[in-house]
Design a protein around this nucleic acid. Structure first.
Lengths: 194, 194
DNA sequence: TAAAAATTCAAACGAACATTTGATTTATTT
DNA sequence: AAATAAATCAAATGTTCGTTTGAATTTTTA
């Protein structure tokens, strides 16, 4: 028996929690709301999870770890910096279209983490940003990028794709491939026609 | 007497509320937190404001109206579409550096508006986006922009600058002028060097 | 300076919250 | 079928929330 029924239930609860947290925020979602969503009494959920905060931690750190391991892979690949950066942006977009609610929560609700978790989460994010900034810096020195402030470039890239998590739906009539290509065109070639 | 002392106090309370809402979220900020911040007992604040929700409404609609009137001005100006779009992006950035907390709240906490206000706010935002999309569409038809999906271009532009509201501080060592120029370079010329 | 108005807060309200307890029901194992 | 374990929930705990009340204090007005 690889996965226990209890674990499956637990993961289901966390998944439903991600949807609700995205929809109404962490503070705006009560354990009773969540219980109703999963079809249990609030008290019963505590058979599967330890606390509301533990759920949020699960979501946030799962996403954070995914981002970090993806970045590591890209760092170790042999490509131009431009290709690396584009690949990373693609991965960000892809994660949003496949794990929308979780990414949304990790991006917007991490402030509600308990003190300890909050510290660690911020540290993880800060490390991630530093490594990404190094990639941009190296690319700029290699002459592949425009000469703009590294922080500005870093945050503009990361921020530019954040809307996808709110907007994209499978039935929106735009394939993820086209979505990625359009965004990459704007960010790397510019919106203005030359 | 143009402005009553009571109004000034009221505006001070709302301003402090914006800072706290940005910092801890609307749901995460209690009226007792806010009272402490402004140096009053929670009960005393109700002499100046009607409810917590009214504060949030004040902040959100003030910002929304600012955006709308700025867009109207730009629509009526005689410039190329590219210049219009750039001017609008500059105004967005500028508003974030001058009214950071309020913009942050209008962008992130509007979900907590009461049902009626929520409906109106969403409607305002939707109208704004439609008018902005029309600008992009027209510019694309005039051959000024790359041929990318209009919605993608719209949201990518609006989203790309959202980080400024979280990151920018007067003491960050980057002038708003340089900030605006760097962002405009990336968005309109592209990060990649040609 | 006396009357009126504006401002403050101590105390309390009912509602909603996350979580615990302890008992009961259901499923699994022997 | 008996014994054991897993799953469920009714009820209650203590806390925090937004807001109201009513009385006290301070400021302004006459």
């Amino acid at each position: 028996m690889i996965k226990k029924k209890k674990d499956i239930r637990r993961e289901f609860i966390i998944g439903e929690a991600a949807k609700l947290f995205k929809q109404k925020g962490y503070g705006g979602t009560s354990m009773r709301d969540l219980a109703e969503q999963v079809g249990l009494d609030a008290a019963s959920m505590y058979h599967y999870i330890k606390s509301k905060d533990e759920i949020l931690q699960g979501i946030c750190f799962d996403i954070a770890n995914t981002y970090v391991s993806q970045l590591t892979e890209i760092e170790n690949a042999t490509q131009s910096y431009s290709q690396k950066l584009k690949a990373l942006v693609r991965l960000h977009i892809h994660l949003m279209t496949t794990k929308g609610p979780e990414v949304s929560v990790a991006n917007n609700e991490w402030k509600s983490l308990s003190a300890d978790a909050l510290t660690e989460f911020k540290s993880l994010r800060s490390q991630y940003e530093k490594r990404l900034a190094a990639l941009i810096e190296a690319g700029a020195e290699a002459g592949e990028f425009q000469q703009v402030n590294t922080s500005v470039a870093l945050f503009t890239l990361l921020s530019a794709i954040r809307w996808v998590e709110l907007w994209w739906k499978p039935d929106r009539g735009i394939a993820t491939e086209e979505l990625e290509n359009s965004i990459l065109t704007i960010l790397f070639q510019g919106l203005e026609r030359k």
